[in-house]
Design a protein around this nucleic acid. Structure first.
Lengths: 233, 233
DNA sequence: ACGGGGCATCAAGGCGGCGTCAAGGCCCGG
DNA sequence: CCGGGCCTTGACGCCGCCTTGATGCCCCGT
């Protein structure tokens, strides 16, 4: 479960806390960078540009507060301070130096994760892009559930839409009758005739000449395939 | 020293804490709104659109968590929860409901002020987004809870308003029946009929010809979507 | 040449989704 | 205590989609 989630830089010199954080974070999909000193932390920060920082104070070669201040000079990535010092003055100094949150040890895993979610919620305010599949002249916008062929919009019934998206997600590859039936009609479906009827409907809507398909290709005796590039003929 | 600084809405029912907060905030230039109940808080929030919220849990007429969730539906203004409950579960719930920070009572004035500075630093960093959604001829002012169609104001019931804002926040995208039910009627709702009835009411109010919808489009077998661009036909 | 299996097409029918109307109950304000 | 607004719930009719069967074609093997 490594390689998908946000990249977090953990700056911490106590091995025990390190292990604790590593377990908590990696089990929730985060990718982790670790630094034990201010020097290491700055190198990793500039080279990898992590999405969020977990910062212990009291490092062997300098103060975490200064590190926070320097990091804040070139990025708005959230910084969460983890510290054994619970004095109010320490918190105020860290927060005013650029930290976004301050947790006093000991703290629970769930609180840490919740505060991480808050931090990431802030930094990801930007709009996310929509997933779109493009195959030849076809364009399928999954979020809008909109299908266009050469720019023109086509209305599809639920079954036709499921058929087409299934084929499009495996563009170029042959899907057997059995695979198609299981994906579109559920694991118990057996009537291969369903596929033929709905494939004909689909061809009426997206093929120039439904009698001579250029996109929805029949593979006799095997299944169907959505052509993903022009072929001779 | 009133009239210059950021407007903060204090939601708190204990008079003693109220006095404490009032003194701490006003002496640092904040302008203050006070509410002792969820009801009051929502009225003041929508009418004055404060820059930041200080929210006590355990109010006489409802849960502060729900208040946070509802406020978060139409603004990104920071919410700082102040609570005597120190359990980790309480913190996680509040933060996941939309709160940006959580202070356990008792806390120091300086820490509160420092965390307020962090919150304001965040909200002023990004482009101050207006709490207004415009989709085609529709204009929804979330702070005023006001809906206009081609300039004319329309009165919506609470359910209709939630339906419309849900669709508007995902303008153009298809929302499934399940998504709509979960967002508007809560995670346990199953009656798809609710959606149909209220969608019909909504159409009566915002469609020119409710029998031929141009805005609230039905996606048969899937759900609904709010059209965000003109289409031929 | 003939027969059979796989495939395409068409049409009929049933069924479920959808829109509409209306009655009943709940909550809140007067 | 009464009244109005709103949500829920049920009934009903329509339309569209899926299913299902019939028919014919093409390709192949015999």
């Amino acid at each position: 479960m490594n390689g998908t989630g946000p990249l977090v830089l953990v700056v911490e010199d106590e091995p025990q806390v390190c292990r604790f954080l590593r377990a908590a974070l990696s089990s929730h999909g985060f990718r982790i960078l670790e630094a034990g000193t201010v020097r290491e932390a700055e190198q990793l920060a500039t080279s990898h540009n992590p999405e969020v920082y977990l910062l212990d104070l009291g490092l062997p070669d300098g103060d975490g507060i200064d590190l926070a201040r320097r990091v804040r000079e070139w990025t708005h990535a959230p910084i969460i301070v983890l510290s054994a010092r619970g004095r109010e003055e320490d918190k105020v100094n860290a927060l005013d130096a650029g930290a976004d949150d301050y947790l006093t040890k000991p703290f629970g895993v769930n609180e840490l994760l919740a505060r991480l979610r808050v931090a990431l919620r802030h930094s990801r305010a930007g709009p996310a892009e929509e997933p779109v599949i493009e195959v030849g002249p076809l364009r399928i916008d999954l979020a809008r559930r909109e299908v266009r062929i050469e720019g023109r919009e086509v209305r599809l019934t639920p079954t036709e839409y499921r058929l087409l998206t299934l084929l499009a997600r495996h563009a170029g590859k042959v899907l057997t009758h059995r695979q198609i039936l299981r994906e579109v009609w559920g694991p118990n479906a057996t009537e291969a005739h369903y596929v033929r009827v709905h494939m004909a409907e689909l061809r009426k809507k997206i093929e120039r000449d439904p009698a001579r398909p250029q996109l929805l290709i029949t593979e006799p005796g095997v299944g169907y395939r959505l052509r993903d590039q022009l072929e001779p003929g």
